[in-house]
Every structure is written in C-alpha cells, then in structure tokens.
Design a protein around this nucleic acid. Structure first.
Lengths: 205, 205
DNA sequence: GTCTATAGGACGATAGAC
DNA sequence: GTCTATCGTCCTATAGAC
C-alpha cells in the first residue's frame, strides 16, 4: 500500500482505473473525490494527474473503454458465424436473437460496475464526450435492431415498431443487473434461459 | 425572482421541492448544491433550512413522496374494480395485467424527474432511508407479482419464475422513459398498446 | 421567513522538490 | 513517478440581524 517516495512505475495506471471504476459505480462520479481514488490506490492525489489530465477524462475513458469492449466482443462472437449455417432462414434469425440475448446477459453480468457507470453517468459527461458515447451505444442497439428487422421480414417476428422493441428488449435484459448475484439460487445458464423465453415470446409473430 | 428582505410566507416549500426535483434529476444529487437550489427558487441558501433539516432529508422526502403517490394511485385505480367484473377468470387476470401495464407507463411518463431520481439516487440515501424506500418499491413489485401468480395458477401465463418475470416486465416498461417525449410521433395510447403487446406475449402460456 | 456573514472543511488541480 | 504543500474555489450548515 502507501508508497513513501520515488519512482515505482508499477502498474499504477490500471490500478487507478480499477479504483475509479469501483468507486464511481458505488457512490457516483460526482460524489467521489480524486483524493478518495488516490487513497484506494495508495498514492497521493497529485500522482493521479500523471495518468489522466483531469477527472472528466478519467470518466470518459472508462465509459469509452467499456463500450468499445462490448462492441468488439459482439463482433468477435458474430464473425466466425458468418459462414452460412445449416437450417432455414427462419431458424437462423431466431438463433441470432438467442445468441444476442445470451451474449448480452453474460457480458453485462461480468462487469456490473462498468455497466452501471455507462448507464448512470451519462449526464456527467461533457457535451462532446456524451455525443461520442451515445454514438457507440446506438451502434450496439443497431446490432439488435438488425436482427429484429430481419425477423420481421421473414415473418418470424411481429413487431409494431422495431426501434421501440429494440429498446424494450435491451431494457428488459438490463433489468437482470438489478437482482442477479453470482452464487444465487439460479445459475447463469438458467437465467439466460428464462430471459430468452421471455424475449423470444415478446417479439414472436 | 430574487427577494430582498422580510417575510414572504408564500409557497416557498413546494417551490424548493420542485427546484430540487428538477436539479437532482438533471445533474444528480451529489452534483447539485444547496446554493443552486436556492438560486433556482430565488432565495438565499440559508433560507432552505427553514424547510428541510438538511440536504439528505430533502432527497428522501422527494423519493418517499413519489413512491407513496405511486402506491396510492394504483390503489385508487384498483379499488372501484374490486366489484366482480363480468367475464371469465382468465379474461379478468389478463385485464388486470393490461391495467397495470398501462397505468405504469402513464404514471411514470407523467413524472419523469421523480422516476429518474427514485431509480438513480438510491445509493445516495442513508442506510435507514434506503431501507424505507426499498420497502415501498417491493410493495409495488408485489402488486404486479400477484397478478402474474394468479395468471400462472389459471394457466393463462407460463412463467418459470414469477419474481424474475416481475422485475423483467417492470424493467421493460421503465425503458419507455429513456426515449419517449410527448409530442413525438407516437401518442401515449399507441405507446401503451405497443408495450402491452410485448408484455402480454412475454408472459403468455 | 429571509437576509447577510461566516465557520470549518473538502474540492480539483498545480508547482516544485526529490 | 511520486511526494508535499498550496492556491483558489466551493461546499453544508449555522448564527444573528431584521
């Protein structure tokens, strides 16, 4: 813990990010001071400014990192799959929706703090930073909306408005964050199955 | 605006609550100062303490008021309805779910600021205050869960876990707050209909 | 019931020694 | 790269005049 003097290149940068992530999620960006973050890492407040120009940049960097990871992880999951699969087009669009549902739940439950911040601290971003994050979020929503639109075209789904359905499905899935605790009475796979049942039925024709 | 001197009993109390509600929703509890609230009302910061013992109590009072109103409004809607309705028990449980869905959307869209605060500022409540609000929230969730359980018993709904389904439905409905703006391309009634379609299908047998 | 004034402390960020 | 020290500002809450 508490350093005394001199250079300890170390891995202070990542530890600052980890501490900020945890504290921002717990108490909120505005309620957390740079001194608190420094204390969690075991350095003095001034030292933080070797790693971030200011508090706002630290928040933005955490949120941007999270959204980029999310998009990349979904890409990675989809890519090997581009090779045409067996089965009907109808089955395929259902499989894509199931893959998205399970991916979303698993990815988000693995990083509750980052998810919390990405949704709760939007209003504490500067205007430019907000625009950037919103654009990444929209990109992710489009991934789901594309699936829903394909399903509607094939007659597999009945959806009055695909944009609203997209947001409704994501909102429902995000709800899992408010109650799920690993080690609870339900396994991750059971949780995924329950939500997949509801999601699938909610958009079915 | 800015008063100069003397007594103006007025309706300062409600105006303080309204200003705090708006500012807390906009910037977050921790980011809003008593000075900002006072300035919005047109008084000096010290005057606020004639109406609240401290900032924390002001937040709690706003959240408690909102939750109490919510529960009361749902009670009021249900009470006249206790008189047995015509139709089968199966139809009746569906009608109750539809009533809840439409009520929830309408009530929440009418007070976006209060809803926002009730969900986002839980972590800024003191321990005791948090417990009190959580208890009110659970009471509201139980209203929905009762309907779902009745539907399962009648074979109208197929729900692996009524507690999870309760939270999933509420999460989905709350999602409407993130995008709906009155005067947009969809009327309130159309929005209710779209969500009712999805909710109903998601729990159907 | 509101004002002015202020106590007492925490804040973000910077400067300069090591 | 981290420390100590500090600047200038803002904060919650209180005291006392009117």
């Amino acid at each position: 813990m508490a350093r005394t003097q001199g250079s300890h290149s170390d891995i202070t940068g990542p530890r600052i990010r980890a501490a900020a992530l945890k504290l921002f999620a717990q108490h909120g960006y505005a309620a957390v001071s740079m001194r608190q973050i420094a204390s969690e890492v075991g350095v003095q407040a001034g030292a933080l400014y070797n790693y971030t120009p200011d508090k706002q940049s630290l928040l933005f960097s955490l949120m941007e990192g999270h959204m980029t990871e999310l998009l990349q992880a979904w890409q990675d999951l989809r890519d090997p799959d581009q090779t045409v699969s067996a089965g009907s087009a109808e089955d395929h669009v259902l499989a894509r929706l199931e893959a998205f549902t399970r991916f979303h739940i698993r990815f988000h439950l693995e990083r509750p703090d980052a998810v919390f911040i990405a949704y709760m601290e939007l209003r504490n971003l500067s205007e430019d930073n907000f625009t950037a994050i919103e654009s990444l979020r929209r990109e992710y929503e489009n991934a789901l909306e594309t699936i829903l639109k394909d399903g509607v075209r094939l007659g597999v789904f009945h959806i009055p408005d695909t944009k609203i359905a997209t947001l409704a499905v994501i909102a429902m899935l995000n709800g899992v964050m408010t109650w799920y605790r690993s080690g609870g009475r339900l396994s991750l796979d059971e949780v995924e199955a329950i939500y997949w049942d509801m999601v699938q039925k909610s958009v079915r024709a």
